[in-house]
Design a protein around this nucleic acid. Structure first.
Lengths: 121, 121, 121, 121
DNA sequence: GTGGTCTAGACCACC
DNA sequence: GTGGTCTAGACCACA
């Protein structure tokens, strides 16, 4: 379900985080459902335990998931509509768009880009 | 002319690079005009020499500027309409937009964002 | 009679322990009365047997309850006024208060907090 | 300046965090002042780099300090009066006091405890 | 030099 | 079994 791109500049833990958010978004992971354990996911992805742990910690700090000691991680109640996460994502877009515009990229190009990308979701 | 934001997550060298491109874009720096020397700009910005050096190197690799040994750095011929730079900027936007969309941000929000940002240029 | 809060950071066995002490305190469990069996309580609370076992062990070590092999656990003689337990509880409060004070919390805030909490008992 | 208690149940990173907050509180560390680097503090305390890193990360998430890549960590603007930190500290006290009261500790004992502790700050 | 990411291994408390 | 803490080491990007 989760695919990693080691050649990407995005850190592994970030990729794991994003894809879990995506799965929660899509309703694949429903509220209060248990996520794969840190160890299990690490083994499955061929990645270190600490890397998955980092991803889970960040997700927990964003209130996407919560942990219960000795039990595991679970999807939070309103995880699918998390304003914090969307706000951060928008901020990243804002920076990128702002930079692109200042370099002479036309806004029409950006509109086309978004239109094209939103069809592949 | 160049303003740095140390609190931003964008690296300093990147900010320098972007703002030089912006100035070239705007016609403030015309082709074959000499840029401030690495040391001078570093002193002016209160930044490490290596940081400016890095920015200039990246600009040179993108064919925005060129260097003449012992003379300094100069704005390249067609610097104002550099496809490589725009392509890279678009790629960054693509990644950010793609990530935002996968996290449930609506494309209308992105359109509004771009519209708002493009008015401030 | 015992209510667990899985979202709390307090371990489950600790919650069970505290609430049994509370019930003993209140006179709901009188000396030499038999407590529910480990298995029964575990089943009732929907909790692992080892968790209840752990709680009972800790209670036994604090002389709140005692066990008779093959018969079960019973409330100890002077369980309602157990100095060891109160001492430990005070030590926890001491650490928390000490930490809060060092972080700039005013003692008036702490007084108010205690006043408010002691009315809900 | 920072003293660790390895025998305490409080994690090392937590102790570092608390003592830095205390130093900020006391005005020893003023806003925008640079903290010792992760490596330097780790060496000084005889502790692993990751442990200090963890402490700094938590402090950063609480807006007590901020980081600048390649430069270090700095005390945040209004670090000395951080509501988030005080709120969390109060919550810990609340839990401890609530537990102590339910175990039969008298509120007068708690008042005396706080009075005594607040004189040693 | 700095912080940021990642790995590989350990030990602990909890369930 | 689970997550939480800690260690010891590596490599990278940035200043």
């Amino acid at each position: 379900m989760i695919v990693l791109d080691y050649s990407a500049k995005t850190p592994i833990f970030e990729q794991i985080k994003e894809q879990i958010i995506f799965l929660v978004q899509k309703g694949v992971f429903l509220p209060n459902v248990r996520l794969p354990s840190i160890r299990a996911l690490a083994a499955q992805l061929g990645v270190n335990v600490n890397t998955v742990k980092h991803a889970y910690q960040v997700l927990e700090e964003s209130d996407i998931i919560y942990s219960e000691l000795g039990k595991g991680f679970f999807v939070a109640q309103n995880a699918a509509d998390n304003k914090k996460v969307k706000g951060e994502a928008l901020e990243v877009v804002r920076a990128a768009v702002s930079s692109a515009l200042s370099m002479g990229v036309k806004k029409e190009e950006l509109f086309n880009l978004i239109e094209a990308l939103s069809e592949n979701i």
